[in-house]
Design a protein around this nucleic acid. Sequence first.
RNA 1: GGGCCUGUAGCUCAAUUGGUUAGAGCAGAGCGCUCAUAACGCUUUGGUUGCGGGUUCGAGUCCUGCCGGGCCUACCA
Length: 569
Amino acid sequence: MARHLITSAIPYINGIKHLGNLVGSQLPADLYARYCRARGHEVLFLCATDEHGTPAELAAAKAGQPVAEYCAEMHAVQAKLAEGFRLSFDHFGRSSSPQNHRLTQAFAKSLDEAGLIREVSETQMYSPQDGRFLPDRYIEGTCPNCGFESARGDQCDNCTKQLDPVDLIEPRSTISGATNLEMRETKHLFLRQSAMKDDLEAWIDTKTDWPVLTTSIAKKWLNDGDGLQDRGITRDLDWGVPVQRDDAPWPGMEGKVFYVWFDAPIEYIACAQEWEEAGKGTDWARWWRTDKGADDVRYTQFMGKDNVPFHTLSFPATILGSGEPWKLVDYIKSFNYLNYEGGQFSTSRGRGVFMDQALEILPPDYWRWWLLSHAPESNDAEFTWENFQTSVNKDLADVLGNFASRVTKFCRSKFGEEVPAGGTFGDRERQLVADLSAKIAEYEAQMEAIEVRKAAAALRAAWVLGNEYLQEAAPWSTFKEDPETAAMQIRLGLNLIRLYAVISAPFIPDASAQLLGAMKAEGADWPSDLDSDLQALVPGHIFAVPDVTFRKIGDAEREDWQARFSGRR
RNA sequence: GGGCCUGUAGCUCAAUUGGUUAGAGCAGAGCGCUCAUAACGCUUUGGUUGCGGGUUCGAGUCCUGCCGGGCCUACCA
């Protein structure tokens, strides 16, 4: 039995996430956490909302709410949706928690004492009308290169040239439209990542088993241009973790907060503290401090590719630089993007399906199955309604759901709603046990390697074996001359339902629970020896014919959804 | 501009460190079954692996050029 610490990239507080966000981190993390638990491992699965930064302040202002109130509300909304998708976090925390404030400030002190923080004076665009410094992308103007009128301060969307906000002709605030922008001097703290480049690179070089996507992004940042750059870790904002050295003031930094990308990963640790304080567990340090028992923890992070630099470099720099015995990540699973019907999901244009809408349409298992079995692992992937409809109908309704239906209904009509007695396994049954054992071993291997699509394919193949067996055994025929053998065959069929429910639970937890409930086999263990596992339901055991496990998606509703989610939420 | 990833059957994807006739699901065709959610099973059609060179006994895999798609490029998070 191993100990697994698992974290999903923490979703930004600003609004409801779409299915692309979901499949990029939270959902595969949940799959892995559920699998590890099912295998009897000790798991701590953490996630949180990322609540600081300019976008949160602006979203709150737009909603006419104080930012703290806005974040509290949105946290509740996201927590409810996470529950709706059956994301089994041990704790869903908040980066704005007191725990994270304390820990972030403590890290800052340690890093400062290690000589890894320097102060930098720089000038930034300030908008008196907005009363705030403007991040580059919140400034628009005419591109000096191509004349495009809506070029952003960081890059021109038209000619793709990278810009500095001061280069823009007639710059204006995208927040208020104000044009009276001025350059103001401001002082910030920088994390001296450049000083840690060699350590970070040596560490990354030991991670030969990481996905290419993960290491190639990390190496790019390490070696691009002049190498790894120091990064500003403070901002001129109100909402965030106040810049302090632990609990002492930081002269010259009054009124400033830490940059979200400094405090957000630290929330992974703070979240464990929140978990303990919420009474959900004990001894958070056992998961996070290698001097307090975390040495044997395997730590796996899940994230979309846009988050990779922060998890491979910035956060490790924070941890290594502190000189303290914090647990470093062991494996980083990163994902590409999910596109929507030939384009991108777009939060701003409301294109695609968002988490709340998805759950209004169909139960979570449908989405979990499709998203996970099409996870964007090797490439960007694409959601289309047609593909969704055929995959879900075929895999879930026909192959798995119908299997449970045909077995239980046949049994009810010939033997009643209890497991029938009689007969013994023959060659065909022994062959099935052998085939299933091999297939489940393959499934387990893929799950352990976190090869999500391949695991889904192996699981589906295990379901298919049941249908193949039934077709060959044909209990509806054997029943006529040899009811004993038919009883054995259908008893095996009933046990297959139980087995499928157990091994499918990480992907489709609701369906799994429904089937186990119908078979009166709640709490069934992960299979270890199929020969006996497939005789777990003994003659005389009572069961019920389950309701339709997965209904089919019809053409009309599919077309309806297709039209409804094409844009403008 | 630079870097990385990618292009395999109509569609979505595989192909163990270069190694036999490139595989699977869906869709299509045919047959079978009748327990079941018109479900299931079997058989089968379908690929000059984006294009052109090269290395090799052997290339989907390695090198090179071109064409197409995507991502990142450090103050959005």
